[in-house]
Design a protein around this nucleic acid. Sequence first.
DNA 1: TCGACGATGAACT
DNA 2: GTTCATCGTCGAT
Length: 191
Amino acid sequence: MLHLRDSAIETAPLLLGATLRRGPVALMITEVEAYEGIRDPASHAYRGPTNRNRVMFGPPGHLYCYSMHGHTCCNVVCSPEGDAAAVLIRAGRIMEGIDVARERRAGVKDDWLARGPGNLTRALGITMADYGTALFAHGSAVTLTMPELRIAEVACGPRVGVSRAHQEPWRFWVAGEKSVSAYKRARVLRD
DNA sequence: TCGACGATGAACT
DNA sequence: GTTCATCGTCGAT
């Protein structure tokens, strides 16, 4: 079940095309960013465990939620215990429950319902109450299903909004996907 | 206890 | 392109 790798850089592109579900709303992940935990100056885990980031230091496959600027964002923990590597889910395309997502994001185009990490959690209904959820456990409120097929065209570029290690091309998205904001310094990876 | 600071988003010019 | 509302966290007092 768990196709996660030790490193967030390896795991991040594998999560493109995966399905993230909470209740009636399910989306296909179209944009992610890798954060390499204790080795990454831009990661919340860089300075070691705190009450906020403790779930990242635990086993993989769990949901790390944090709030900032009044928004909630979510990550998938992907490293073995202690490494604290995680992948930030930045955008997705709603596949099921779009009527519910539209209610939560009134007045927004369908393609943009889950564009941006804060908007994505709003569309799915993820809050801090979902902190630490086991994403691959049966019966969890939030679940993650790995993709059947690997996305053929993956683009990558620098991470968004980080002040440290911003030169690293650790942001990945599905090439041409409308639910992802355009970015100039991008290049397309092919298998 | 306090204050600075964002892995943001929306509304501007 | 720019500004700013807004709030939890964490390190510094």
